[in-house]
Simulated scan of single mutants.
Amino acid sequence: MPVEPPGPVESSSASASADREALVGACIELSDRLRDANPALWRRLCRGLAVVGVEAVVVDGQRFDPEAHDAVGREITTDTARHLTVASTEFCGFTDRGRLLRRPEVVVYRMEEAV
């Protein structure tokens, strides 16, 4: 006896979810390429993503939090106020309706160590 395929509601709901996930992933990849190359288009893409609940996370100037940020580099500073703050967000983080998709990758200010 043949096995019946899932009903149309189950199938289309799962398919729509997978399609949305793939589309959001492609937009995030495109965002990485656009941010420096074409900031106006990057902002437009981020506004479009925000309409469907996907938010870019840029943390420039914030206190570095190893629980929320991935450090990918450091920038030496002599300013004690900048020590362990984010110098730049190299790759934005993203959330989808509050669910973390990707943590921001950042460069962190560090005090120059005495030799």
Rank of each mutant, 00 (worst) to 15 (best):
E21M: 12
A50W: 12
C27V: 06
A22K: 11
I28L: 08
I28Y: 00
L34D: 01
R20S: 04
R44L: 14
L41K: 03
A26C: 05
A50V: 13
L34H: 01
L30E: 01
L34R: 00
E21A: 15
W42V: 02
N38D: 14
D19F: 13
D32Y: 05
L49G: 01
L23Y: 06
A40C: 07
A18Y: 08
G48F: 09
I28S: 00
L34N: 01
A22E: 04
R20I: 06
R47S: 15
A50T: 09
R35H: 06
S31E: 03
A50H: 09
L30R: 05
E21F: 06
L34V: 06
R44M: 13
L30H: 05
I28A: 00
I28T: 01
L41Y: 02
L34I: 04
A37T: 07
V51D: 10
L34T: 02
D32K: 09
L49H: 02
L34G: 02
G25S: 15
W42N: 05
A26E: 10
S31H: 04
A18P: 04
D19Q: 14
P39L: 01
R43V: 13
A37S: 06
D36G: 08
R44G: 10
G25C: 03
W42K: 05
V51H: 12
S31L: 05
A50E: 11
E21V: 08
A18I: 15
S31R: 02
L41T: 10
D19W: 09
A37Y: 03
W42F: 13
C46L: 15
R43Y: 13
R47D: 14
